[in-house]
Amino acid sequence: MSEVLVLVDHADGEVKKNTFELLTLARGLGEPSAVVVGAPGVAAKAREALAGHGAEKVYAAESDTADSRLITPSVDALALLVERAAPAAVLVGATITGKEVAGRLAVRTGSGVLVEVDGVDADGTATQAVFGGAYVVKSKVTTGVPVLSVRPGAVEAEAVAGAGVEESVEVPERDARLVTRITGSEPIVGGDRPELTDASVVVAGGRGVGSAESFSVVEQLADAFGAAVGASRAAVDSGYYPGQFQVGQTGKSVSPQLYIALGISGAIQHRAGMQTSKTIVAVNKDAEAPIFEIADFGVVGDLFSVAPQLTEEVTRRKS
């Protein structure tokens, strides 16, 4: 059985949820092999979690400079393994970084690339939402090794024991003048809430929230659910919430188990980033709002009346 390479998304060896989803998807295509790029020792930290979700191999592409070089170390490691292992496919998360890795790797290896994939059949046929989510299509790479960026949350992760055999990968050092160096980073400020693309529940607010101060109604409902907070582009452009929480075509793509949209009209740009959510609940005063076209449950009403009642009820049931 051919290997399927999975680029591990991690923070100092702590594996993120979307990697477990990729490993689950990889099992339907071949033998999952996790590729950990980072400083020495991170692969050992991640190995147990990766093996617990089906990774038969854990490739350790480690170096002292891996964390200070943007994108390039991941592309170098994957390109080397594509040549060495001739995998059936390469899977990366459809994050901002992951999509750039996918594009560069496809060019480097002369392969086809598919982005924002929601699922893949055993024969490699992928399902994608295109043109802002207006259509769902089936696509298949016919050149080289398929490189697929998979939308976080599109696949439900399943824990299955794998061997998790660790194997070192020597990635040659690049001339420092030819790569982008990371000189500093700041964590996303979100309190104790889960990361937006990893969350199983997302509560998002739109222009209908009215102001930055009023966004507390969104946060309170999110905290009652233990959810992440999102925002529409209109809300971000209006200064109601930071851009790092934007959901949509020019923001982050999410596919949680539950997506609650408060005061969001449902423009195609926003729908493109969340319409694959398993259950969508919308609250809007406008009964003709496009968001109701894709909502599983809709409430036509004032979000400032509906959301606090829901927060109270969720809190009561959890206590």
Rank of each mutant, 00 (worst) to 15 (best):
G239W: 11
I268P: 07
A267Y: 02
G243T: 03
V247D: 13
V217H: 09
I260F: 00
Q220W: 00
V202M: 04
I188T: 10
G184Y: 12
G190F: 04
E213V: 02
D237R: 13
A204E: 00
R174G: 01
D192V: 02
M274D: 09
A261E: 06
Q220K: 15
G248D: 08
S211Q: 06
R181S: 13
S265R: 12
D237N: 14
I188H: 09
S216G: 13
V202P: 08
Y240G: 00
A227M: 12
P172I: 11
Y240F: 15
P194I: 07
S211P: 02
A272Q: 09
A272T: 06
E219Q: 13
I182D: 11
T250F: 04
S255A: 15
Q220M: 03
S277H: 09
Q269A: 08
A267Q: 13
G205D: 04
G184A: 15
A222N: 10
G226F: 13
S168L: 05
K252H: 07
R207M: 08
G226T: 13
R207F: 08
Q220C: 00
V203S: 02
H270R: 02
S216L: 01
A176K: 15
G206A: 05
V203D: 04
S211D: 05
E195V: 09
V179R: 10
I264D: 05
G206Y: 01
S216D: 15
V171F: 11
G251L: 02
V229N: 12
A234P: 10
Q244N: 14
A212I: 00
Y241H: 14
D237Y: 14
S185K: 12
S232W: 12
G243L: 03
R181H: 13
G226Q: 14
D198M: 05
V203C: 04
A267D: 11
R193H: 12
S185G: 08
G243I: 02
Q269W: 01
T183Q: 10
K252W: 03
L258N: 10
T180R: 14
G191N: 13
A228F: 05
V254F: 07
A199F: 02
A212N: 03
G239T: 06
Q246G: 02
R233G: 09
S265V: 10
I268R: 05
V179P: 08
G191D: 13
L178V: 10
G205A: 03
